[in-house]
C-alpha cells in the first residue's frame, strides 16, 4: 500500500472566538424575531467547518440562509400546528403525528441531501443519494419495529440506520461504505446491563448499610423501600451521566472503524472516561455560569470528538474528482431538527 501514513482530523476552533460568534448570533436572532437565526446557522456551521482540518485543508459550508429560513418557517408552521392541535384534541393530535411520521422519511432524505450537498472539502462537494423508499424502511419502519420489540432489536436497527446513511453518502465521485456486523452493535450495548446492575446493587447496599448503622435517619421497617427507591433514582441518573458517554464512545468508534471512502479507511479511538470527564466538567461549568459556558463546552466536546477520528488514505488525497451536482432544499433539515430526529451520526 503506497503511503500508509495515518491522518487525524484537526480542530482549530477556540472557545473565546466561538463565544463571540455565538453571542452576536443569539442577540441578532432575538432582535430580528428569529429571522437572523438562518444566517446565524450558516455562520456557526462555517466557523466549525472551516476550523476542521484534514491533511492541512479545511472543510467548508455553503448552505444558503434564505433556503434555511424557508425551511424554518415551514418547520414552525408544522410544529406549531401539531402542538396546538394536540393541546386541545388528542385524537386530532394523534392523526397529525401519524401524518408527520409518514412524511418524515422524505424530510430526512431532503435534510441529508441539503447537509451533505452543502459540505465541501478541497473544493469538492459531498452528496447523498439515498431513496425515499430506503428511508421509509430504514429510518421509519425499522425504528418502530425496534420500539415494538422493547429495544431487543434496537442494535440491529441502529446498524441498518447507520448503514443506510453512510452507504448512500458520497464525496466527489466516490461512495462511502459501511461494513459492521450486527453482533458488534449488540456487544456495544451488552456492557450496559452489568454496569446498571452494578450501580443499582452498590447504591442499594450502601444506603441500606448507612441506614442500619444510623448514619442516615431511616426507620428500620422502611429500610428496604427507602434504599431501593434511592438506588432506582441514582441508577436512573447514572444512566444519563455514566452510560451515555460510554455508549457514545463505543458507538462512534464502532461506526468510524467500519466506514471507508472507497479504499480510504476511517478509524476512531474515543475513550468513554475522557468523554465522561469532558461532559461532566461541561455540565458543571454551564450550571455555574448560568448557561454562558455553553459555546465553550460545545467547542471542547467537538474538538475531542474530531481529534479522535483518523483517516488511513490509500495513496494521496489528490485523486478525487467531482461527482454530479444537485440542488437541495433546506426544508427537510430544519423540520427534522425541530422534531429532534437528527440521526446523522
Amino acid at each position: 500500500m503506497p503511503n500508509a501514513k495515518q491522518m487525524t482530523f484537526e480542530f482549530t476552533g477556540r472557545g473565546g472566538e466561538y463565544f463571540r460568534i455565538w453571542m452576536v448570533n443569539t442577540c441578532l436572532s432575538i432582535v430580528t424575531l428569529g429571522i437572523y437565526s438562518a444566517w446565524a446557522k450558516v455562520r456557526r456551521n462555517q466557523y466549525i467547518y472551516r476550523h476542521t482540518l484534514l491533511d492541512g485543508s479545511g472543510f467548508d459550508y455553503h448552505g444558503d440562509p434564505k433556503s434555511i429560513l424557508k425551511g424554518r418557517i415551514m418547520a414552525v408552521v408544522l410544529f406549531g400546528g401539531y402542538s396546538l392541535i394536540s393541546q386541545f384534541n388528542q385524537q386530532a393530535g394523534l392523526v397529525a403525528l401519524v401524518l408527520i411520521l409518514l412524511v418524515m422519511p422524505w424530510l430526512l432524505v431532503r435534510s441529508l441531501c441539503f447537509k451533505l450537498h452543502n459540505t465541501s472539502y478541497r473544493g469538492l462537494r459531498f452528496a447523498f443519494h439515498g431513496s425515499v423508499k430506503g428511508a421509509f424502511v430504514n429510518l421509519l419502519g425499522l425504528p418502530i419495529l425496534g420500539l415494538l420489540t422493547f429495544g431487543v432489536l434496537w442494535p440491529w436497527v441502529q446498524r441498518r440506520m447507520v448503514g443506510y446513511v453512510r452507504e448512500n453518502s458520497a464525496y466527489g465521485n466516490l461512495q462511502f461504505s459501511f461494513e459492521a456486523g450486527t453482533g458488534q452493535f449488540y456487544r456495544a450495548y451488552a456492557m450496559i446491563v452489568p454496569i446498571v446492575i452494578f450501580i443499582f446493587v452498590l447504591l442499594m447496599s450502601s444506603v441500606y448499610l448507612l441506614g442500619s448503622l444510623g448514619a442516615i435517619p431511616i426507620q428500620e421497617a422502611k429500610l428496604t423501600p427507602v434504599s431501593s427507591f434511592a438506588a432506582a433514582l441514582g441508577t436512573y441518573l447514572a444512566l444519563f451521566v455514566l452510560v451515555m458517554p460510554y455508549l457514545e464512545a463505543r458507538l462512534q468508534n464502532l461506526v468510524w472503524n467500519h466506514t471507508a471512502l472507497n479504499s480510504h479507511q476511517f478509524s476512531a479511538d474515543l475513550r468513554a472516561r475522557d468523554l465522561l470527564w469532558i461532559m461532566s466538567a461541561n455540565l458543571f461549568l454551564i450550571v455555574l455560569t448560568l448557561g454562558f459556558y455553553k459555546p465553550y463546552a460545545e467547542i471542547r466536546l467537538l474538538r475531542y470528538r474530531l481529534e479522535h477520528i483518523h483517516l488511513l488514505p490509500y495513496g494521496d488525497l489528490d485523486q478525487f474528482t467531482a461527482g454530479l451536482q444537485s440542488q437541495a432544499s433546506a426544508a427537510g433539515e430544519e423540520i427534522s431538527d425541530m422534531f429532534d430526529f437528527d440521526i446523522s451520526l
Partner: peptide, 8 residues
Amino acid sequence: FDGQSSKR
C-alpha cells in the same frame, strides 16, 4: 482548488 478534482 479547481473545483473539478481534489488536487491541491
